[in-house]
Measured scan of single mutants.
Amino acid sequence: NQASVVANQLIPINVALTLVMMRSEVVTPVGIPAEDIPRLVSMQVNRAVPLGTTLMPDMVKGYA
């Protein structure tokens, strides 16, 4: 099963993503693939993302 990107903490809106904010985990439904974590660094989410939430492509500005 493919690992997805999961919030490692509350990720506020309009804050640049850092490695420490994200972890990889096998979850259902599948979200952004874990291998895209380096690409996500410095991008921003378009809504607050609670701890443990799977990041979906539509949550990250400029990802999709």
Rank of each mutant, 00 (worst) to 15 (best):
L19M: 14
T54E: 01
D36T: 10
V30E: 10
L17K: 00
Q44A: 09
P29Y: 03
V60A: 01
V49T: 05
L10I: 13
V26E: 10
T28L: 15
A16N: 10
P57W: 11
T54N: 00
L40G: 01
L10C: 07
A3Q: 11
L17F: 03
D58M: 11
A64Q: 13
K61S: 14
S4P: 01
A64C: 07
A16H: 13
V6Y: 02
Q9K: 12
L40T: 00
V49K: 01
M21T: 02
L51Y: 14
A7G: 02
I13C: 08
A64M: 11
V6A: 02
V30N: 11
N14K: 08
A48K: 09
M59I: 05
D58G: 10
N8A: 09
T18S: 10
P50W: 04
L19G: 08
M43H: 11
V45I: 08
A16M: 13
M59A: 06
L19A: 12
D58E: 14
N46S: 14
A7K: 02
Q44D: 04
L40Q: 00
I13K: 15
P57C: 05
I13H: 10
V30S: 10
M56D: 04
V20Q: 14
N14E: 08
P12R: 06
V30Q: 15
S42I: 03
L10F: 13
M22E: 01
G52K: 03
V5K: 01
T28V: 12
E35D: 11
P57I: 05
P12L: 05
A64D: 15
V60D: 02
I32A: 01
L17P: 00
L51Q: 12
S24M: 09
T54M: 03
V60H: 01
Q9P: 00
N8Q: 10
M56T: 13
M22Y: 02
V27S: 05
T18C: 05
P33E: 04
V41S: 03
P12G: 08
I11L: 09
V26M: 14
R47D: 06
T18F: 03
Q2M: 12
Q44N: 10
I13Q: 15
V60E: 01
S42L: 07
L40V: 05
A16W: 08
D36F: 11
Q9D: 10
L51K: 15
S4D: 01
N1I: 13
V6G: 01
I11E: 00
R23I: 06
T53S: 08
V15E: 13
V6W: 02
Q9E: 14
E35N: 13
P50E: 12
V45F: 03
K61Q: 13
A34T: 06
L51N: 12
E35G: 14
T53D: 12
V60S: 02
V20D: 15
G31I: 01
V27L: 04
T18Y: 03
Q2C: 06
V6T: 06
E35M: 12
L55W: 02
P50Q: 09
V45R: 00
A34L: 03
A7Q: 01
A7L: 03
Y63R: 03
P33K: 08
P12I: 03
V45L: 10
Q2G: 14
S42K: 12
Q2S: 11
R47E: 09
N1K: 13
G52Q: 04
V30M: 14
I32V: 08
K61T: 14
M59C: 04
R39F: 09
V45N: 00
R39I: 07
V6R: 03
V26Q: 08
M43C: 05
I11C: 03
Q44E: 14
R47A: 09
V41E: 06
D58L: 06
V60Q: 01
D36H: 15
V41G: 01
Q2N: 11
V5C: 06
P57G: 07
M59G: 03
N8I: 05
T53N: 07
Q44L: 10
L55C: 03
G31R: 02
L51D: 10
M56R: 11
P57S: 08
Y63N: 04
A48L: 12
D58Q: 10
V41L: 12
K61C: 06
A7Y: 02
P29L: 04
P29V: 06
S4G: 04
A64K: 05
P33S: 06
V49W: 03
A16F: 08
I13P: 12
I32Q: 00
V49D: 02
S4Q: 02
G52Y: 04
V5W: 02
L10T: 11
I32W: 02
N8S: 13
P33N: 08
N8K: 10
E35L: 10
M21L: 04
A3L: 11
